[in-house]
Design a protein around this nucleic acid. Sequence first.
RNA 1: CGGGACGUGGCGCAGCCCGGUAGCGCACAUGCUUGGGGUGCAUGGGGUCGGCGGUUCAAAUCCGCCCGUCCCGACCA
Length: 483
Amino acid sequence: MSANERLVKQITPKTEDFSRWYGEIVQKAELADYTPMKGMMVIRPYGYAVWENIQQRLDRRIKALGHVNAYFPLFIPESFLKKEAEHVEGFAPEVAWVTVGGKEELEERLAVRPTSEAVIGPMYSKWIKSWRDLPVLINQWANIVRWEKVTRPFLRTTEFLWQEGHTCHATAEEAEVETLSILTMYKEFCETELAIPVLAGHKTPREKFAGAQMTYAIEALMSDGKALQMGTSHNLGQHFSRAFDIKFEDQSQTLQYVWQTSWGMTTRTIGALIMVHGDDSGLRFPPRIAPVQVVIIPIPFGDWKTTVLPAAQAAAESLRKAGVRVQLDAREEATPGWKFSEYEMRGIPLRIEIGPRDVKNGQAVCVRRDLKTKQAVPLADLAVRVPALLDEIQAVLFDQAGTFLTANTRRVQAYDEFKSVLESSRGFVVSPWCGGAECEDKIKTETMATIRVILPGDDSPQDGPCLCCGKPAVAAAHFARAY
RNA sequence: CGGGACGUGGCGCAGCCCGGUAGCGCACAUGCUUGGGGUGCAUGGGGUCGGCGGUUCAAAUCCGCCCGUCCCGACCA
């Protein structure tokens, strides 16, 4: 088989039209579908299964760090939302409002939560009295609504699913430790489970969460060279505790405002999985979050139902026992070739073909989705070899994404070069920056690039002058065009 | 929200300019055939032409408004 041969014909090649490729994958692989309401999508079973895997693995990590789950209301009274001035101003343009209940006009309109700080604050105020009540470490899995003008499946939809953590601490130091520990956990999660390398650092004041003291984020690079924010962790300081009057009495009997954090990851990560790993043939899911890790396709010939099929069923059973998420597709109405193509597009990490020749030889043919290589594996060894192969595939996807990230991260001093890099190859451009919002604005207007993140080591005076204004640079910032 | 394009069986499209009985490929159904990279043949079902209004004897086709999708910008997870 030639490497360039196009075997999946139902989608536009990614190299030809990235946007179209993305949209077609979402629909043809049945991850999501559009509804008659603008910006509202249905996450279909195959896409939702990915989300469930993400949820399960992220939830495990959140709990391992001591957090517990709870659920807060969908609606937020306007008066609550208004309590933190910067917060309400930041979210005002994208809040949906409920003004009527049944047939009654409401006395106070209700916001559909764009995030839950403002509805959680009053409850924390009620629950926290003493230093003995701290820390409060609560997470919730929820849907939220942001009235977006431009929407794209998974990347930006009017309603989306996420997890939001909201914690309260006795000291500023403790809140900062929490913020960073979540950031580290997010990074580890993306790299281990999603096989997506990310940059972890902090945002500039211009890009931070409305109401936060400091926003940290993990940023990934999509294969079209645009950056995508994968998660954020905010140190809220005492902004919200002062607004919502969340106080505790410390050990010296002094009343103090608590120090808070909030952090979240969303269904957007599914968009990242598509854009980071996908190729011309469609999806390539990392085995750890793939809804189906292995598909077994029996090759029908003559009396295959009494020879091939039992062997395929036995193979499926042994893999299932080994903890592999396996699917056997013995449908007669689709030919093997059709199935190959279909499962390739859907990103199933490993395909196992079992035909008459294989049964005779006591083997199966394993075809990797990541490299498209084939290898024969003795049927008796499948339960051992397949999990190992899945681990290898996971590692290859992560390595490929890492290589791409490294190759597309460039350190640039001169503005001319900065512009031309963003125009031609995109990616991250690391450049000296004076710390001024005016320069950020100017650069954004002229190049469409923003500061995505500033890495811990880059947060100090630089050799070169600011890329934009020439004044002394206080940091090396990662710029990129972003989704 | 600005600028552009598009909307016709499930999907991809033709028909529209020049108004006159809605068509093609794929998919779907049935039967045979085939099967290690989207088998082949035969027969068949399915569409208020995005919605509303207008012009006309007559509208997929002409006009207006609205909705949705995509692309390019401003705002954002």
